[in-house]
Design a protein around this nucleic acid. Sequence first.
DNA 1: CGGGCTATTGACGCCTGTCAACTACGGTGG
DNA 2: CCACCGTAGTTGACAGGCGTCAATAGCCCG
Lengths: 238, 238
Amino acid sequence: MSASLEKGLNKAHDRCTICKIKSYSFCRCLQDEQLRVFSGITAEREFKNKQSIFLQQEHSKHLYNISKGNIKIYKLLNDGRIQIIGFLYPGDFFGSYKKGRFNYSAEAIGDVRLCVFKQEILDIYLEKNMNLAKELLHRTSHELTLAQDRIGVLGKMNANERVAKFILNISDQRARIGWQDNPISLPMTRQDIADYLGLTLETVSREITRFKTSNLIKVMSSKQVYIVDKEKLANLCH
Amino acid sequence: MSASLEKGLNKAHDRCTICKIKSYSFCRCLQDEQLRVFSGITAEREFKNKQSIFLQQEHSKHLYNISKGNIKIYKLLNDGRIQIIGFLYPGDFFGSYKKGRFNYSAEAIGDVRLCVFKQEILDIYLEKNMNLAKELLHRTSHELTLAQDRIGVLGKMNANERVAKFILNISDQRARIGWQDNPISLPMTRQDIADYLGLTLETVSREITRFKTSNLIKVMSSKQVYIVDKEKLANLCH
DNA sequence: CGGGCTATTGACGCCTGTCAACTACGGTGG
DNA sequence: CCACCGTAGTTGACAGGCGTCAATAGCCCG
């Protein structure tokens, strides 16, 4: 084996070890030795803004972990209406663990780098790593509670409350992965926010303007928001 | 050991083996021998209509499996608004796998019998039973897809579509556990249905009346509905 | 039979969707 | 460097679906 090839392989097997987001990802439960093996069963792929990662009707054979950027997962109704299920951040895990088809479509927001696994291989790997299985169970369980929170938002909150909750959620989510939680950037469009909150883009825009004129937030640019009064914002949507 | 005590113990340890709902529960992945052990770490509890099983703010130490009846899980907003997250059926699994507090409250609808585990003990038991861990992961993953479907319903569908979808879901859910899927019984009140669908009880009532007058359903009694035209109903909410 | 709870039906008003015009911004090319 | 264009966002006018409030009807159980 040539020195350069060996170096190349080592580099590949180090990928997970040197991954910047690993402490926030589900693979954080693996030891360095296991991470090397793990590097071997994963691959990295890059996506550009608006590029599709997979579609709902496709056969689901892969699972994904975000190492850089944001993605959105969404459902399409047969008349073209869109419901965005979630905006995902570095360290988030997606794709369907079930066999069959995906339950949603996924698309890049801005430049994205993903870690990709084959579902079957991860399944086999789980057998040898109860820690990983438990971590996955906890993560999925956590996703479930987030989804249930969203059911509460969409079922009972008005436009004002939804937008307030959205801004606070983004802030919290950023804090969770060690980013500054104020000001926050909103990488998605107003239409995306509307499709996420079950509103129209006009209503989202109006509510943001209302928060601005009430001095609860400052809109530095349309995608950059500074939260002036977090407490009042929270009181709106408890 | 006296014969009667031995008989008593055997009976207790047979509980899971003779459980009628086991083929629909997450414990179906266990062998008879494992089921006997499992009987030892679970207990049965009964609840009456409207009886609380646990509240959202309580410390979550237990997990539950329904062996008989229906329950609802719901969230309360601080101003008293209710959002029902789900209606659960025999074989369904609930409670929080996360440590900390429950994410919702749970209440019996009619007479209910539950199988109860301590979370810590189940956690230990998982270590020895990768099958059980995988089954739990699959079930939780399935719950997640159901929750995501509901996000789509609450985010994008109008009253008409929500009620149609609800009736069809109930029918499907019944079929899934081997019950007749038509006519269906609606054990919950109109208020419960409204709190589930993010509507008011008046709107639910009106939509049901509309389906009745359009001959899509027959309302045998307020809690008993016969689906006349499943296809048209499905076309309303695809 | 009567009381209390649940469901239905009606009248009305508000929140948010719809449609439309206008503004801001970012990139591209001359 | 600026003019131009396309996309994204804001603001306004209006309408309709669903919530709110209220009255009535149906049903269960004592």
